[in-house]
């Protein structure tokens, strides 16, 4: 599978903080800006997960309404709005996929809890920018095919390691090794100094 990195607009933390403050103040223009900044990325993530345009539209709407209605709990000074929006988008899509598949993993953490705005504070200031996206893409392509597959199955299909082992007809231990090695390699590449 060939991936294109999403080309970000300048996602500097300064403007995101100001945007978050205006969203908390319920400024209509701020919601327009939030959608213009993250709408395409959120829709792309959701579409990649559900592979259905109509469902992706519904879930993108659900994502932005959820963020808009939960801004009161977001720390505009310390929070990172972009990662929060993308996490909500991915979680909505995975929840939808699990519901359609009738698939609820015992070991999957409760996704709604994993998108609490309190989790998205004090993140490093360069989490989402085009350079880090390029860095991740390059690191991802250095992985073996099996390592790339398990990361995709985990992130874009929400499969547990047991479910991946079933899907790939591989021993659970092998899948766990692929996952951990892939995460370690990605982390090491992302820990390289970044110039912004």
């Amino acid at each position: 599978m060939f991936f294109f990195p999403i080309l970000f607009a300048a996602l500097d933390s300064e403007s995101d903080r100001a945007l978050a403050a205006r969203l908390k103040a319920r400024e209509p223009e701020a919601l327009r800006e939030l959608y213009d900044k993250y709408g395409r990325l959120a829709y792309s993530v959701i579409f990649r997960v559900v592979r259905n345009a109509a469902a992706a539209e519904d879930l993108t709407q659900e994502t932005f309404l959820r963020v808009w209605n939960r801004m009161a709990g977001f720390d505009a000074e310390r929070g990172s709005i972009g990662p929060w929006v993308l996490t909500v988008a991915r979680n909505r899509a995975i929840d939808y996929l699990r519901s359609v598949d009738g698939r609820m993993s015992q070991n999957a953490i409760e996704l709604t809890g994993a998108e609490s705005p309190a989790l998205f504070v004090d993140m490093e200031s360069v989490i989402l920018n085009s350079q880090r996206a390029k860095l991740l893409k390059a690191a991802f392509h250095k992985l073996s095919e099996q390592q790339r597959t398990v990361i995709e199955l985990a992130y874009f299909e929400g499969l547990s390691q047991t479910e991946m082992a079933d899907r790939l007809s591989q021993p659970l231990g092998t899948v766990k090794t692929w996952v951990r090695t892939a995460l370690r390699l990605l982390r090491e590449e992302l820990e390289e100094p970044v110039t912004v």
Binding site: F3, R48, P83, T87, L119, R132, L186
Partner: peptide
């Protein structure tokens, strides 16, 4: 971990939402 997780979203192929969605 949550930050790295969010960054993985950039691996998604670009899909253009229809203008009506906004």
């Amino acid at each position: 971990a949550m930050a790295n997780n969010a960054l993985l979203s950039t691996l998604a192929p670009v899909a253009e939402p229809p203008p009506r969605l906004r």
